[in-house]
Amino acid sequence: MSQNISKFDPRGLVVPLLLIALWWASAHWGWADTRLVVPPLDVVAYAREQFVSGELALGLVASLARDLAGFAIGAGAGLVIGALLALSPLTDRLAGPSLHAVKQVALFAWIPLISVWFGQGEPAKLVFIALATFYPVLFNTYEGIKSVRRELAEVTRVFGFGRRQTLLRLVLPAASPQIFAGLHLGLIYSWLGTIGAEYYLKVAPGVSTPLIDGREHFEMARVLYGMVLIGLVGALLNAVATRLEQRTLRWRPR
């Protein structure tokens, strides 16, 4: 993904530009339902209005705070439990199958239960985001440590490392690429969870508000603005995660 960012290819712009031209044309000459096809500039105007009025910043801060808090909880739990399962075969056999079984319940099927147990407000949202983050982090941590342990079992025996030493100096460093991959994936899922939580639970400031309002009032400009915003934040989170991942892993001898 990163090499695509560095290597800009103008051909990639052709399709979006064509789409925008088509959009503009059909709005301009009224080829389609005018409520559905609003002029592109309306979206820009709405975006500016949101920026100037401070709504944009308000929603962005609220959503990001929500996202990161939920991510922290979910990723923390995923890391700890994933490591525990990978390091202790007994725990693995005890809890592994149950965790796998629970994972089969589609993420959004938790919404009704979560909202009954935790209400509709912020706590429920955090629980949902944490749940969305939890599984990718858990499985990648687990797999990472597990595969390293198999490979390095011999080495540690040769060097006569203790358990603690093995864990800190061998297992965790060696497993870190996959653990980071899990965290990266978890971050992407947490963003999905944030949008889902804002959509299904109580309406509160956030990036999804324009989407929800826009749909309710049939205002296409708001909906499109909301989608662009969500996409941009998603891309930003992804870019930050990629950068962090690379930087953190740079020290590793390849």
Partner: peptide, 16 residues
């Protein structure tokens, strides 16, 4: 409650 009666019942069950 925008969720009306059903949401209100849940709040009562939660002791809120």
């Amino acid at each position: 409650f925008r969720g009306a009666g059903p949401a209100l019942n849940e709040a009562v069950a939660n002791g809120l």
